[in-house]
């Protein structure tokens, strides 16, 4: 029973991280109809940024959040302005944008190999190993903090999308970009900001993962696919749906440890991805865009 509680707690903690990653991917796809294959690369970049700031400047990873988010936002803006903007849109642009952003990912990965070698890295802080009792099991302080941030972020974004002019403009562009130009919304600017926001979320997710897991330049490929599972399962840009879907994925993954040999638990996410795409391509609650 203790073990059961342990697993549930760790699944909930993991779900927060998955939700943050997936929200960025879903936002970009919802507005631009582009699958950002560079998402995994940016997750990796976020992790290394936190590592550099901590290792070289002694900055606490949680205090580094504004810096990392700002830097990855800029990275997203540049990626959009320099590369993605020039792609054909719609069905015809599908394979092209996939391949282009895949190329960006390869470049990011290679750059990380050159700069930091392929060794596994970790961010260790004074409180890395500290845990507090909760529901009869011990929970790492780190994981709790990650969960808190992962809950606050999507809610803040949800408020941004619902309550601000910018958010309304983003939702309007997601629905019909052509009409937006008619009513005076600068669609290109909205695309740029959206791509930046989505990328910044990936960077944040990477930084948060780095406080829990070890990482190397190949880090992020599994995270990308998990994000995709969550996006498809939860619907695009729905905060509630994303949260539930992330929880489903995390619970399945965590409980797979009980029945599968440890080597195969990594395959659970991949298998789920395919099953979800084939059987629930509309998501758990039907497909909604930024609702």
């Amino acid at each position: 029973m203790d073990r059961f509680v342990d697993l549930v707690v760790s699944a909930v903690l993991l779900a927060g991280l998955y939700a943050t990653m997936a929200y960025g991917l879903g936002l970009i796809y919802g507005v631009l109809r582009v699958v950002n294959l560079a998402h995994g690369g940016v997750i990796m970049v976020g992790a290394y940024m936190g590592w550099i700031l901590h290792g070289w400047l002694g900055l606490d990873p949680y205090l580094a959040i504004p810096l990392v988010v700002g830097a990855t936002f800029l990275l997203g803006v540049v990626t959009y302005r320099v590369l993605v903007r020039h792609l054909p849109r719609g069905a015809a642009g599908g394979p092209a944008s996939l391949l282009l952003l895949f190329g960006v990912w390869l470049v990011l990965r290679n750059a990380a190999y050159l700069l930091f070698s392929g060794n596994d890295q970790t961010i260790r802080t004074a409180y890395s190993t500290r845990a507090i009792p909760l529901l009869g099991s011990y929970v790492s302080v780190n994981r709790l903090a990650v969960l808190a941030i992962a809950v606050v972020t999507p809610v803040a974004l949800h408020l941004l999308l619902k309550r601000t002019y910018l958010g309304r403009a983003i939702r309007a562009v997601a629905q019909n970009a052509d009409s937006c130009t008619l009513v005076g919304i600068d669609v290109e600017r909205i695309y740029t900001i959206t791509f930046g926001l989505g990328t910044a979320l990936a960077g944040l997710a990477g930084l948060l993962s780095a406080t829990i897991f070890s990482f190397n330049p190949g880090f992020g490929s599994g995270e990308l696919l998990k994000s995709f599972v969550v996006v498809v399962l939860g619907g695009l840009g729905s905060v509630f749906g994303t949260g539930i879907a992330a929880l489903v994925l995390a619970v399945v993954e965590v409980f797979a440890i009980l029945v599968l040999p440890s080597y195969l638990t990594a395959a659970v996410g991949f298998v789920m991805l395919v099953l979800v795409l084939v059987f629930r391509p509309g998501g758990l609650f039907g497909q909604r865009v930024l609702g």
Binding site: V35, A91, G94, P95, L98, S221, G222, L225, F228, V232, Y263, L264, A266, A267, G269, F270, V271, L273, V274, L277, V278, P281
Partner: peptide, 18 residues
């Protein structure tokens, strides 16, 4: 389109592990 491509990544990686 992208849904197919992403699913193939999943199958490929799952096959590698299995």
């Amino acid at each position: 389109g992208p849904y197919f491509s992403i699913a193939t990544i999943g199958v490929g990686e799952a096959a590698r592990l299995l």
